[in-house]
Amino acid sequence: MSSISTPATTSGKNRQTRSSQPQSRQTQSPQNQRRKRGVEPIFYLFLVPSLILFTLAITIPGIIGIFFSFTDSIGIGDWEFIGLTNYIAIFSDPAILQSYLFTFGFSIVTVIAVNVVAFLLAVGLTSRIRMKSALRTVFVIPMVVSGIIIAYVFNFLFSNSLPSLGTAAGIPWLESSLLANPDLAWIAIVLVTAWQAVPGALLIYIAGLVAVPGDVYEAAEIDGASKFQQLVKITLPLVAGYVVINIILGFKGFLNAYDIIVGLTNGGPGTSTRSIAMTVISGFNGGDYAYQMANATIFFVVAILISLLQLSLTRGRNAL
């Protein structure tokens, strides 16, 4: 799925390169130098390893997968072409539709939660407070722990610690695990995912906030703007680009949600928290290879559409 996240990163780079291009063309590369077609071969050499790896590791397997989505292969043995049967079956499969609904709903909620929390934390951590660097370290720790470990730790907290706390304190709704409730288990997944994803967004926001020049605040202060007005009318517009980056990167990541869900609910209770990635993987264990390849292909197309949409949105945002 890493192929899916590349448009986002390139779109991020686009911003920077485009702004620097006019300058460099004037200073370094006059027109006559271009005519010599003298591109240093070393630059191609830089590209080749990644190109080979990307082709071998992403493109070819991707094409193989798309190819098999038109067959009845189970991963081994004989297979034959069955045309669009897999695709027809997918569109009438409530389990797969549900996994799309869940994944998109979950991603939207999580992206909002992560960005609100990360932005507020970043504002706090860039203002004049005590123990700033110590606090920053504390908030970034979740990023370095692997998702599956975080999920298992929280699984224990939700299933054992919180219910026994609820029993001891006599709070009835806390006595049963959040993870055992088909209607609320997704909240637990959002919480844990956000807990892990906030630091990444936080770092980007801190970088953005530090880059805002101090004199605009001084000017605002002289004009009598309150701290809240400064936040809404100065800080927010000036870091808008970073907000977009964070939303794109976050959304892309959350669409691929897998490890934290496996560790927390394993798609349960029932099938209420099965993500798209989980249904795709189930094809490998369940001998439903071709069918889930068709699912993955559809997911790929959906992801490309979202990427294009976001790409055009970012272009508009750059004006800010």
């Binding site: 799925m1 890493s2 192929s3 071998l56 590791a57 992403i58 070819i60 397997p61 991707g62 193989i64 997968g65 098999f68 991963g75 691929n256 897998y258 990635a277 795709v280 993987i281 490998f284 889930q292 390849m293 993955a296 997911f299 790929f300």
Partner: peptide, 12 residues
């Protein structure tokens, strides 16, 4: 992830 696994299978 799905593509990644497909890759492994394909390569192997």
């Amino acid at each position: 992830m799905g593509l990644g696994l497909a890759l492994v299978a394909g390569l192997l």
